[in-house]
Design a protein around this nucleic acid. Structure first.
Length: 675
RNA sequence: GCCACCGUGGCUUAGCGGUAUAGCACCUCAUUGGUAAUGAGGAGGUCGCGAGUUCAAUUCUCGCCGGUGGCUCCA
């Protein structure tokens, strides 16, 4: 029989008899401890057990690789399904993919609770221990339909995914099998280190109108150590959760009597927010923005013109209707449904909590005759908007019903779009850089070429889209084009970051808009003496102050740079004798605009340090006999570093400069200690 | 909005058909202590809200409100 030639990743070509498996080839090349759990034949992923029949290239997939982890997770999902089926024979498995942080499997079954996860997990480990071989079996369509005849979900997949007359594969371990393309680990013993993490629900095919399924989430790692490390990492991440830290550090409060998703900024949080606003305001002035203020409500008619009221009713607070009018309508026997209709028709007017700031800003633009010399006109406002988010979606500071955007609207000529979009991007870059937020991605939302829902001419879109692409490119970070993700009124650039539990949040956004100027018939007089229509750019580099601060709390784990820290210094006295000096130091610092808290109580020094540590001041300033006599201070940094005998004026000077320069992290005590 | 789970003084939390733990925080007294908890005492809760079952509900049932994890949605 003719031998086949197998090319290995290093370029070596070995000859084998046909029918040799990938596993054997890899073992031959790398030895028995090759650490692979699957393979690639000519680039296509497959099982280690796959047999080779002709010349090809073979490459092992290491467990540690991204692809390897993906396969491990996918196999763990299968194991989960096997375990669930053995414990709940009535359950019907649907789909169970690997995801970035683990895996899940959706079942049609009676609901189970968190406490049921333990036995399932135990069963999984028991099955894993039995070291079943995971076997790939090719089947024809009729065979598949026969095998999964009692599972309508699998049948639906077979109907939709598998071409008439062709077949697919199942993966079988012990007496259990699942419809799947693979590849999978060679045997279940690879899946010992699993942990089921949570239980929730999902709709079949993600469709709200279809069956609700039970979804079980889990994580899996190649080794016990890796699993333990992952669990520890998840627990550590949870400690950074802004909802927990926000409470511990007294940054904000949400009160159910005030309302869901409505943030109360407490004094310490207000400082954080104010510092950020001041920081960005400085850059706005530099870039030629004009500050404006507008009210929190506007007439319904305004939002009829802008299109917000008719199009986005479901995500708005209900309109406010005048009390007398309400009473009159009620007396006339008008029902709620009729009232709603009247409002929609524009028969009666009312006010709306503003869902966006743009209509107000548009009106400021339109309040004067504008000439091309006025453009670009950049109107900025920290504007608070209200949106009726679904109750189940509200979360901490990241998804709320009332929030303040660091909003601005740029009214520009067609030719100014590119440079102004770039200016907006620069602003985002300045902010992210100063705060050390390098872990973000950028989405450029482009129009869907096949759709006609977009306003504005194709060539204008092309230009605007090019401007967005170029701007995104200029950032030097990961960015992706997302066709079909543009707003109907123009392309956009979104900045997306992850929170501690891996959820992505959109922060900043830059959007080009041809629509609103049209709707409000905005004009300017060009240099040619003709009337032209401006283009608008909406942009919010932080996105919302609430969401941004939420993400920022997690980013810094509550250990903010000195300029942002709500209380920069906590002054702590050793004993009663030092009260006088402590207050003197406090006054001096306060006079120099440094935020100080003083503890001259009668706790021991150890106790005071323990107490104040929790609030994460940039520095603890310890004052006792030595300091009072020599007019110096002792500093204690967050990490425990200490330094004594710093002359008071020098400390003030250094601290002031650290704040003014917005240094990334407090480093006075650290620098001194290292010398 | 949907599904599951959860809701005990400011915070963390024990408990359970007979109105309730403990720690931290708070207040008082003593202590004046040099870098992660000094000691003693005290006060503080209609056990999320409303109904129902029961001789009796914080505990069981239902409804509502709120939170958590997902799903769906997200201008």
């Amino acid at each position: 029989m003719a031998l086949i030639q197998v090319t290995l990743p290093d370029g070596t070509i070995n000859e084998y008899a046909p029918g040799i498996t990938c596993a054997e080839v890899i073992t031959d090349a790398l030895g028995r401890k090759h650490g692979c759990l699957a393979a690639r034949i000519d680039g296509a992923e497959c099982d280690l057990s796959r047999e080779l029949e002709q010349d090809c290239s073979v490459e092992g997939i290491l467990t540690q690789s991204d692809e390897g982890m993906y396969i491990l997770r996918h196999s763990a999902a299968h194991l989960l399904a096997q375990a669930v089926m053995s414990l709940y024979p009535d359950a019907k498995p649907t789909i169970g993919p690997a995801i970035d942080r683990g895996f899940y499997y959706d079942f049609a079954m009676k609901s189970i609770s968190e406490s049921d996860l333990k036995p399932i997990q135990k069963k999984m480990q028991e099955l894993a221990r039995k070291n079943f071989t995971v076997e790939r079996i090719e089947m024809s369509e009729p065979e598949l339909k026969e095998l999964f005849s009692s599972n309508p979900y699998k049948l639906e997949i077979i109907e939709q995914r598998i071409e008439e007359g062709s077949g697919s594969t199942i993966y079988k371990q012990d007496d259990w099998s699942d419809l799947c393309l693979g590849p999978h680990v060679p045997n279940t013993s690879r899946l010992m280190n699993v942990k089921l993490t949570s239980i929730s629900s999902a709709y079949w095919r993600g469709d709200q109108n279809r069956e609700q399924l039970v979804r079980i989430y889990g994580i899996v790692e190649p080794s016990k150590e890796a699993l333990r490390a992952t669990i520890t990492r998840l627990e550590e991440a949870k400690k950074r959760d802004h909802r927990k830290l926000g409470k511990d550090l007294q940054l904000f409060h949400i009160d159910e009597e005030v309302g869901q998703g409505l943030i109360l900024w407490t004094p310490r949080g207000a400082i954080l927010r104010q510092e950020l606003q001041d920081f960005i305001s400085h850059h706005l002035r530099r870039q030629g923005y004009s500050q404006v203020f507008t009210p929190h409500v506007g007439k319904l008619d305004l939002y009829r013109t802008s299109g917000h009221f008719p199009y986005y009713q479901d995500s708005q607070y209900p309109p406010l209707v005048e009390r007398d009018l309400m009473k009159k309508l009620a007396d006339e026997g008008c029902t709620c449904g009729e009232l709603s209709n009247l409002m929609e028709l524009g028969e009666i007017d009312g006010y709306m909590l503003k869902p966006m700031n743009c209509p107000h800003h548009v009106k400021i633009y339109a309040s004067q005759m504008r000439s091309y010399r006025d453009l670009p006109l950049r109107l900025a406002e920290f504007g608070t908007v209200y949106r009726w988010e679904q109750s189940g979606e509200i979360s901490g500071m990241t998804r709320v019903r009332g929030f303040t955007q660091d909003d601005a609207h740029l009214f520009v000529t067609e030719d100014q779009i590119a440079s102004e979009v770039l200016g907006c991007i620069e602003l985002v870059q300045i902010i992210f850089e100063k705060l050390g937020m390098t872990d973000y991605r950028v989405r450029v939302g482009l129009r869907d070429a096949d759709s006609d829902k977009y306003v504005g001419s194709p060539d204008r879109w092309d230009k605007a889209e090019d401007a967005c692409r170029a701007a995104a490119e200029s950032l030097g970070v990961n960015w992706s084009e997302e066709p079909g993700e543009a707003a109907f009124y123009g392309p956009k650039i979104d900045f997306v970051v992850k929170d501690v539990i891996g959820r992505e949040w959109q922060l900043g956004t830059v959007q080009v808009d041809y629509n609103l100027p049209e709707r409000f018939e905005l004009e300017y007089k060009g240099s040619d003496g003709e009337i032209h229509r401006p283009v608008m750019i909406h942009r919010a580099p932080f996105g919302s102050m609430e969401r941004f601060c939420g993400v920022l709390i997690e980013h810094f784990a509550g250990k903010f740079p000195t300029w942002l820290t709500p209380t920069q210094c906590h002054i702590i006295t050793i004993s009663e004798k030092h009260k006088g000096y402590a207050h003197e130091v406090a006054s001096l610092l306060r006079d120099n605009n440094i935020r100080v808290e003083i503890d001259d109580g009668d706790d021991t020094i150890g106790k005071k340090i323990r107490t104040h540590r929790k609030m994460q001041p940039a520095y603890m300033v310890i004052l006792g006999d030595g300091e009072a006599e020599g007019r110096t201070v002792s500093l204690r940094a967050r990490n425990g570093d200490q330094v004594s005998g710093i002359p008071l004026d020098q400390f003030l000077k250094d601290l002031r400069s650290e704040i003014d320069q917005k240094v990334a992290q407090p480093n006075l005590a650290v620098t001194e200690a290292e010398e």
